[in-house]
Design a protein around this nucleic acid. Structure first.
Lengths: 196, 196
DNA sequence: GTCTATATCCTGATAGAC
DNA sequence: GTCTATCAGGATATAGAC
């Protein structure tokens, strides 16, 4: 990645800059409440300049949620590949990885979790997200079968509560936060509970 | 509540009917992605008919999130009033109540949790919500001070994770679900953890 | 309580000049 | 890479008839 020299005159933005600003506004105001004009104003250019870099507003959303889904899937692949570990350990690692990925791709994951399914692209994202959820649910089930996780609660319910807690991090986590320490705290609280 | 006789001819809706349909569409498509025309079409009337019952689109949102905030605040008042109980018991009850209220006012709470703060009314709702969050955080702190809840994690962090888990229920809970059983499961998992 | 018609503004997106 | 100008459609909201 070559560092470009500071520019003079016209801003001279690129696709990445548009994507960055759009993502920020989408998270702050919501995707539907953010117009292409908003993105343009924030970058200090006209609406048309945006369409030079990007084919459509929805394309921006596709790119962002795609980043989140790729990162989550890859992290899950890594965890699943460790066959030597116990199912309990793999679940712990899945929780840890989910937190780390969420923090590393905070804006992207935040947007992903807010997708409604109003367009084909959004529905495709929801489909991919459902696949991730199912893989996580399967890991919980295996940990229950192994005896590492309590069997008096429905594994699907456990999965939803556990990763619901993880996903709720998007509501308040800030980019400068220590992700590893956070992952530790989440894992501890989830597995050991908050009772003394 | 008197049951009105089945109508003939024109629908003859009232404010409650508009509110009900609007809430459903707001949750399904998002507030910003839902137009007054959408609400009108769903009710089988024209846009103007909606404005006979309701002064503005935003007023609908205000009403709905107000319902959620009132219910949550009231439940919290009830829990706080039980001075005889220990702080640990009060926290358990707060979690239980939160789940029950969330299930009883599912559409309203769902919308409340998705408010962005784009308008004065939305910002007012966020303010009230922040007050609720602070009361819950205070209850966690008291339970920690009392020794009922682990002290090796920041009370504010515990509060965020705990009620983040509770709030994540809006993502999948359905109206016909047994709220008490759900509240039991959430409380058990939160306090005892998922390890065997 | 609902309608048609309308006012006003903003939306996503395109054409073509510089 | 950005601009001005423009398009067609849809947004919230209102006026006034029935």
């Amino acid at each position: 990645m070559t560092e470009s020299a500071p520019r003079r005159g016209r801003p001279g933005h690129d696709q990445a800059a548009v994507l960055r600003v759009a993502t920020e506004l989408f998270t702050r105001q919501g995707y539907d409440a953010t117009s292409v004009g908003d993105v343009a104003r924030e970058l200090g250019v006209s609406k048309s300049a945006i369409y030079h870099h990007v084919p459509s507003k929805e394309h921006l959303l596709e790119r962002v949620v795609g980043e989140a889904l790729d990162a989550l899937s890859e992290a899950l692949d890594d965890v699943s590949a460790r066959h030597a570990d116990t199912a309990g350990t793999r679940l712990r690692d899945a929780v840890r990885s989910s937190v780390v990925v969420l923090a590393a791709h905070l804006p992207a994951v935040t947007l992903l979790l807010r997708v409604h399914g109003n367009t084909p692209a959004e529905r495709a994202a929801l489909d991919r997200r459902r696949q991730v959820d199912q893989r996580l649910a399967a890991m919980v089930r295996e940990a229950v079968d192994e005896g590492a996780v309590r069997a008096d609660l429905d594994p699907l319910l456990i999965s939803r509560l556990l990763f619901g807690m993880v996903n709720s991090l998007t509501e308040w986590v800030r980019p400068d936060l220590d992700a590893d320490a956070l992952a530790d705290a989440v894992t501890t609280l989830a597995f050991d509970g908050l009772s003394t």
